[in-house]
Write a protein that binds this DNA or RNA. Structure first.
Lengths: 226, 226
DNA sequence: CCTTTTCTCGTCATCATGACGATAATCCTC
DNA sequence: GAGGATTATCGTCATGATGACGAGAAAAGG
């Protein structure tokens, strides 16, 4: 039986929270098509390589970081016949959530990788859509999982965790209610015993990510139209 | 630049509720590899065909039904290097939820398509995993969306909807509390005005699927370990 | 007419949440 | 060092959602 052949790529939606807003890692394309445009980092899946392995490899190459406590999961696949003018290319998109770390550019593929605020449009290929899907996935996952901690360093305060929610959801959250929710939901966070020092205001206790896979009950954002 | 080439297939996890239990549409493989084994229906993505179009085409071919009010969504992609002994094949799995309809076998590809209870293992390729992912997706979607109605005919009773939840989640639900929840959650169901007749017990009002994309608040299943 | 079955509506205690007051513990400024 | 600013943490209260369960309504079948 004969069948069409495809190239298969992985594209990465790498999100972080910095300066109070959600940012995505983008690269400027050096070659046609879409030369000079911003695009999601990504690349071809190699022979003998699993999809997840390819995503982890690309993430390491683009960020120059050995997986620093973040989170990586498959997002969705995109394969419109005309999505790449060079031919039939199916891309498997992955979503990565990382703490705010500088992107090293020396000695990596990430010649022009940069954190950009989400919301800019005009990315190459169908990357606008992929990015939008990734952001919606991240927003939704924060409701039902403790994954907000993937945006934080290994130890963090409740306030830092709340600021992640506020940045990703784009809405303000009452600090007192959030504190109650975060500390009372089993497996959300676990105290380290330590505290912050040197900042403004009362020192805050430090927490690590909890061991729950799911928040129960979830932490639902306010839906538009209620 | 050179890169590996892949075949791309779509595989379908087609679920329905019948006889009080969750069933999946399986086909018996007629050729090697895995000849004689049960497998998910699926096939190659054609030249000039979008992934979603391929899934809809396969669904129509396998069930012989023009999309009968069900639901179809992308599930995930699977591309382990050794998942198909014939070579590098990436499959994009789709999840379909259908009302319980007979599977016509005449004049279709579905030479041996059958509804099988979920839970049997030993499917071809990595289809055990794909099926498990599809079931978990369906269970989860029932919590946050009105999609349970996709398992029902266009008009249905609250009891029928409840039985969908009980079959998919595998747990009993209090009919009175479920009735309150279904009728009071905005956009979950909308009454048609009609009623059942001829059955045992008091006639039940008929409903259609509501127009909400999300249930708010959601209808959470009891989590193990609470 | 009575029983059985199933649907529908109500009640009540409990829990989660949103709104917000109050106190605690630090830093900064004078 | 006194007082204010800032942030963290704890508490209170009204409201809404939920689980458990009682009870009436509307049919079928003897």
């Amino acid at each position: 039986m004969s069948y069409p052949v495809f190239a298969v790529t992985v594209d990465l939606v790498v999100l972080t929270v910095r300066e109070g807003g959600l940012h995505v890692l983008l690269v400027r394309r050096g070659i046609e098509p879409y030369q000079g445009k911003w695009a999601l980092p990504g690349g071809f899946v190699l022979e003998d390589e699993d999809l997840g392995s390819a995503a982890r490899r690309e993430l390491a190459e683009e960020t120059g970081l050995a997986d620093a406590g973040g989170h990586l999961e498959q997002l969705a696949s995109y394969g419109a016949p005309d999505r790449d003018p060079r031919g039939r290319v199916v891309t498997v998109a992955y979503l990565a959530l990382l703490p705010d770390l500088p992107v090293p550019t020396a000695g990596t593929d990430a010649a022009e990788a940069e954190w950009r605020p989400v919301g800019e449009l005009g990315l190459a290929f169908d990357h606008d859509r992929i990015l939008a899907d990734g952001i919606e996935r991240a927003r939704s996952k924060l409701e039902y999982t403790p994954l907000a901690a993937a945006f934080c360093p290994p130890e963090f305060t409740i306030a830092a965790l709340r600021q992640v929610y506020e940045a990703v959801w784009g809405e303000a959250i009452d600090p007192r209610n959030f504190h109650r929710k975060a500390t009372s939901t089993p497996g959300f966070v676990s105290p380290t015993g330590g505290s912050t020092e040197g900042g403004a205001g009362r020192p805050a206790r430090l927490y690590r990510r909890g061991d729950a896979a799911l928040l129960n009950p979830p932490l639902l954002r306010r839906r538009p139209g209620d």
